[in-house]
Design a protein around this nucleic acid. Structure first.
Length: 579
DNA sequence: CGGTTCTGCCAC
DNA sequence: AAACGTGGCAGAACCG
């Protein structure tokens, strides 16, 4: 059954049951927000899984989770709209060719600090009520238009899978934000104290940094040096005779001067303080949980982005603070060499897939005699996917091209398409954005008869730049699709484990408002890795399910093509212990 | 003074 | 060794 939920007024929801073409089945029900959670919970209590269609999962589902209600399936209209409007597969449809509407706008970010507490049913709708405008949502009509667009695509199987994967990703994002990543503030504080000295008020330098700043000034014989100011440091180092043009780490590291070591150490520690210091901890860790605001589909390639919390860049330095609760474990898994494996499958390059038969594809490439070392294999593969032309990576390209012609042809063709300003499309059907007007104008000018050399060279350089983007887009975007399928299947398996387990399910949890209090659940996702927080007794079962889900995702996308997706996987107490 | 851009570094 | 993709973020630097 499919039920479209839409905001009817600032205080009401309309729930419309619809059929396969989005046609209304029976009367729509109007509910006050206060009754929505009970309504959804009742439908979710039935054996058959409803599909909830709504504008924006982060709002609708965030509210439901706060009220203690989990759902199994949804269709996220806004995320699906973005895919269907831009895909080359739907480019011929009225849906893609019509003028953009409000549905074409990105979801509004959740307000900075609605960290999911366990609110009561009474609060439900607060997030919804704060959404864009007060206008009613025309969700049924939009759903119908999307179904219509899909029906106009000859072979829409992959596109349908993409919309389902994108939508389940949005559910998972909301669930992970709700549950939060277990975070020990005492461990975090101990790391900071060890690296920086005891906590000091915001705006003052901790002892360890003060001491390093003193040493830097003494060595340079200049007490006015401020190591936090790149400009100031650059001038001071130039005065000291160092021929550098910036103060970035690699340029400094090339110099031999006694000030370099303390300066690099200062920068390292200062970074920890500003990015993940006490201020960050106070702001983002609530009740020993990090609640990052994931943005599914936030990157053009379909990768997730985040806004706030910095979950895309949790430095290794602080990962020891990510610690399972007593009696619980973290199952940490990452896909080994995901992107090259995806490339092998996209291009049906059986030689490259064969090199990935073991757990280390780079070792497999060496074993096949393509290059001499694992480092070479890695830098060559990354160069092929990123479009490297110079350096070691560029020099190794011919060897790779000889060994894996199909794979390399695929990325080269994607690059050439981008250079011509064309769109490229992932395995499941997400297309790259078109280059901007400025880009097109530059290309037009350069191709005019009177164009000067500078214009031509600038245009060529912009074209190659866009080619590197589209080259990477097909691989990165298809890898993101695999990851969504992997995670969606993990979610299904965890649900099944919960159903089988003696610790009973959602109903009791729902009553307490804590949807994930006693069951294994995903708590972290980053491009090709996941963390599940699980009661210890389920840890091995969870690890097996995560592993099987990777194989499942491979079959779902690539059918019988013999490509493996091995994982690095560990059952640990602390994230830092995983690899 | 507040808003925007730049620099540098974190993650994959 | 330093050029090769996607992001976020803090603080400095710049600008009207």
């Amino acid at each position: 059954m499919t039920i479209v939920l839409a905001r009817n007024s600032p205080t009401e929801v309309v729930a419309s049951t619809v059929g396969p073409l989005g046609e209304l089945l029976g009367e729509a029900r109007v509910l006050p927000f206060a009754q929505l959670a009970a309504f959804v919970a009742e439908r979710e209590g039935r054996p058959e899984a409803e599909r909830w269609v709504w504008s924006d999962s982060s709002r609708w589902y965030g509210d439901l989770l706060s009220a203690g209600v989990r759902v199994r399936r949804c269709h996220d209209l806004r995320l699906s709209h973005a895919i269907l409007r831009n895909s080359t597969l739907t480019a011929h449809t009225a849906f893609a060719r019509s003028e953009p509407t409000d549905w074409s706008l990105p979801a509004e970010p959740l307000s900075a600090h609605v960290v999911p507490a366990h609110s009561t049913l009474f609060d439900l709708g607060e997030t919804m009520a704060s959404g864009r405008g007060a206008a009613n949502e025309d969700s049924v009509a939009e759903y119908r238009r999307q179904l219509m667009a899909l029906s106009e695509v000859p072979d829409a199987g992959r596109l349908r899978l993409l919309l389902a994967a994108e939508s389940v990703g949005a559910l998972i994002a909301a669930e992970m934000r709700h549950a939060g990543l277990p975070w020990r503030t005492d461990v975090h504080d101990a790391i900071l104290t060890e690296e920086l000295g005891p906590r000091v008020p915001y705006g003052t330098r901790p002892a360890r940094l003060e001491e390093l700043a003193g040493r830097i000034r003494d060595i340079l014989g200049d007490q006015s040096v401020n190591p936090d100011s790149p400009q100031n440091v650059l001038k001071a180092l130039n005065r000291a005779g160092l021929m550098i043009t910036s103060t970035n780490r690699w340029e400094l590291a090339e110099q031999s001067h006694p000030v370099i070591a303390p300066l690099l150490e200062y920068k390292k520690r200062a970074r920890l303080l500003t990015a993940n210091g006490w201020t960050w901890m106070d702001q983002w860790i609530v009740n020993e949980r990090l609640h990052p605001d994931y943005v599914p589909g936030g990157a053009a390639t379909g990768r997730w982005a985040t806004s706030g919390g910095g979950a895309l860049q949790l430095p290794r330095q602080v990962r020891a603070a990510v610690t399972a609760d007593p009696g619980w474990k973290l199952v940490v898994a990452d896909a080994a060499q995901l992107e090259p494996r995806i490339l092998a499958a996209l291009s049906a390059d059986t030689a490259m897939a064969a090199a990935g038969r073991g757990t280390d594809m780079y070792a497999g490439i060496v074993a096949s005699g393509v290059v001499e070392s694992r480092d070479h294999a890695k830098v060559a593969m990354l160069g092929a996917m990123y479009g490297a032309t110079t350096g070691e990576s560029g020099r190794l390209m011919p060897k790779l091209t000889r060994a894996y012609p199909r794979a390399i042809r695929l990325v080269e063709q994607a690059a050439r398409a981008g250079e011509r300003g064309e769109l490229v499309t992932t395995w499941l059907g997400r297309s790259s954005p078109a280059p901007g007007e400025e880009w097109r104008e530059a290309q037009r000018r350069a191709s005019q008869p009177g164009a000067n050399a500078a214009e031509e060279s600038r245009a060529r350089s912009r074209a190659r730049e866009w080619g590197r983007f589209t080259r990477n887009f097909v691989v990165q975007g298809s890898a993101a699709e695999w990851a969504l399928c992997w995670m969606g299947e993990i979610r299904n398996s965890l649900h099944a484990i919960q159903q089988r387990s003696s610790t009973p399910p959602a109903r009791r949890a729902a009553a307490s408002g804590a949807v994930f209090e006693s069951i294994p659940h995903l708590v972290f996702f980053l491009h090709d890795e996941i963390i599940v927080h699980t009661p210890e007794e389920h840890a091995d079962e969870v690890a097996a399910a995560v592993t099987e889900a990777a194989a499942f995702a491979g079959r779902l996308l690539f059918g019988d093509f013999p490509v493996d997706f091995p994982l690095g996987i560990a059952v640990v107490d602390r994230y830092a212990d995983a690899k």
